[in-house]
């Protein structure tokens, strides 16, 4: 219980940091802290596999990408807000959601799962048990999520792809590109470098 309270406070403070910190890098770091705290929380609930996946996927891959993009773009602190009213709408929605969550939890309090039972069921976060549930019971859902992710990936590739020259003539975009890529001292094509960004 003491561990839970400490972890809960740390993760909530981290989550607040994401919203309140001005510097984008600090906000992203705060999110990393929250994610790591959640992973520790999973460990205390005997869900070791989930904890490691949380660290590996969110902290290790997704947040690295986030920080990479923030650093690459070197986002300046944006003082001028484009739609000032939107901030208040967001505050309102956030407040309603928070109050709803707390009220919901108070109206329908549930006993936390017993650690011993969870340990027996998960066998120390055994990946085999999770695989059985994931690949037999929820096989179809799992495959569908895979297809969904693939769709997202194809969409991202389609968005950043260069336009092909139309059959008739050369468009302005491709002409500009040709000028850019044929600068002296630079190899004419960098497919990976361009695609990697």
């Amino acid at each position: 219980m003491v561990t839970f309270v400490i972890l809960a406070v740390v993760s909530v403070v981290g989550a607040l940091g994401v919203v309140l910190l001005r510097q984008p890098i600090h906000a992203a770091l705060s999110l990393v802290g929250t994610l790591l705290t959640l992973a520790v929380l999973f460990v205390t609930l005997q869900a070791h596999f989930l904890a490691v996946i949380q660290v590996l996927v969110y902290a290790g891959a997704i947040m690295v990408l986030f920080l990479f993009v923030i650093m690459l773009l070197n986002i300046e602190q944006q003082r001028k807000e484009i739609r000032p009213w939107l901030r208040w709408v967001a505050y309102g929605i956030g407040l309603v959601a928070a109050v709803g969550l707390i009220v919901g939890a108070l109206l329908d309090p549930r006993q936390a799962p017993d650690a011993a039972v969870a340990r027996a069921a998960l066998q120390g976060g055994n990946a085999l048990l999770i695989a059985e549930v994931l690949y037999f019971e929820f096989m179809l859902a799992f495959q569908l999520v895979g297809v969904l992710l693939l769709t997202g990936m194809v969409g991202a590739v389609a968005l950043v792809q260069r336009r092909r020259p139309p059959p008739g003539g050369v468009s302005a975009a491709t002409a500009r590109e040709a000028v850019l890529t044929d600068r002296p001292g630079r190899p004419s094509s960098h497919p990976v470098e361009a695609g990697g960004r």
């Binding site: 890098i25 070791h48 490691v52 120390g124 990946a127």
Partner: peptide, 25 residues
């Protein structure tokens, strides 16, 4: 002795990279 030792090592080493690029930034 973790049941998921392989994943643990991969996860911890992948978090270690934060040190490098936060230091640089």
């Amino acid at each position: 002795d973790l049941d998921i030792g392989v994943l643990y090592v991969l996860a911890v080493t992948s978090v270690g990279v934060y040190g490098i690029f936060l230091g640089g930034w």
